[in-house]
């Protein structure tokens, strides 16, 4: 086992799958010699050659159309969208074309494509780079959407995504790239694509979060533990599908729940979680479901991000409110 950052775990997963399967291909803007603007593909072109790891012209629809065409020729493409804020340029190829191909061709043609892209905020990037557009893809039938909150899951989920025979959108949190290190096993291991994880057990309330907000939620759980409150924290890991069984089991135990997302309130993953719990476990609840999210503005300018993004303070406030509800 080695200590790895989130981004090192991603690079390692890519290396493992480039080695395991010679049909895997990595391509995107600046992913070759430069190793990607965040260095996620650092050294991979040198190690595996320009046939396997290559730069593309600067066009997101072209990159994803290329991925679809390559998948139709038996490859296992791993395209990168340099920032997920650029995904709208590629929405037809991803949501209109790739996502519906298996269904459209009577189940006979699968497209094993993993679209990697950094998302989320808090790193003061220029306008339209940072964004929380995960719900835009998580509401498309035929796409899986996963996002890890830590280096261990980053590697295991990415390997699972690459091995999966359907299109998977793999979202990497910008803020987490270099802010945490974890023990990460060498070689291949997988984390299931459709299972949430209880990352901290508790009995008084459940916080459901994903990506960077999992770590914010854990801070709140630790703080409240000192006051004798037992907080369970669940990392969704998969935004589509949502692992409702794991969520419902927790709610049946704690009877109180707060759902956290970094995205705007109207931008839907938390809303889906809330409605799933309402449908399946409303009678187990002792309080309304709490929701923590960013406000419904356009994604903020870099200097305003810290005032805008929900973090531990906002989560704590909401958790206390739901715990106190009688």
């Amino acid at each position: 086992m080695a200590k790895m950052s989130y981004i090192q775990a991603i690079t390692d997963a890519l290396r493992v799958e480039l080695k395991n399967d010679d049909k895997t291909l990595i391509f995107g803007e600046d992913v070759g010699k430069n190793g990607g603007v965040f260095r996620a593909t650092d050294g991979l072109q040198a190690e595996f050659g320009e046939e396997r790891v290559f730069d593309t012209p600067l066009a997101e629809s072209g990159i994803n159309g290329l991925a679809m065409g390559l998948a139709l020729q038996g490859f296992r493409p791993i395209p990168e969208i340099q920032f997920f804020g650029f995904v709208f340029e590629a929405m037809d190829e991803i949501a209109g074309q790739m996502a519906r191909t298996r269904y459209r061709m009577n189940g006979k043609v699968g497209l094993p494509i993993t679209i990697r892209s950094p998302f989320g905020g808090g790193t003061h990037t220029p306008e339209m780079h940072a964004d929380s557009l995960e719900a835009v893809v998580a509401t498309v039938p035929g796409l899986r959407v996963v996002t890890p909150s830590n280096p261990y899951d980053a590697k295991g989920l990415l390997i699972s995504a690459i091995k999966n025979n359907d299109p998977v959108v793999f979202l990497e949190n910008l803020k987490l790239y270099r802010s945490m290190k974890d023990e990460v096993p060498e070689g291949e291991y997988t984390v299931p694509l459709d299972k949430a994880k209880v990352v901290r057990e508790g009995t008084d309330i459940t916080i459901i979060a994903y990506s960077a907000e999992v770590n914010e939620s854990l801070k709140v759980a630790e703080k409240l533990e000192k006051e004798g409150k037992s907080v369970e924290v669940i990392d969704l890991r998969s935004l589509s599908p949502i692992d409702t069984d794991t969520l419902v089991a927790s709610v049946n135990k704690t009877h109180r729940v707060v759902v956290v997302q970094e995205a705007q309130r109207m931008a839907g993953v938390a809303a889906k979680v809330v409605s799933d719990i309402s449908e399946r476990a409303i009678l187990a609840l002792d309080a309304p479901i709490g929701r923590v999210s960013a406000p419904d503005t356009i994604y903020p300018f870099g200097l305003a991000e810290d005032d805008w993004l929900p973090g531990a303070a906002e989560i704590e406030e909401k958790v206390r409110e739901i715990l106190d509800f009688n």
């Binding site: 159309g65 290329l66 679809m68 065409g69 998948a71 139709l72 037809d92």
Partner: peptide, 25 residues
């Protein structure tokens, strides 16, 4: 091949990918 494309032009980017796959194979 693929069934008829409805989204005008979408098949052009896919054709580039299919052809790159043909070359790589």
């Amino acid at each position: 091949g693929l069934p008829p494309q409805i989204i005008i032009g979408a098949q052009y980017v896919q054709a580039a990918g299919v052809a790159l796959g043909i070359k790589k194979n």
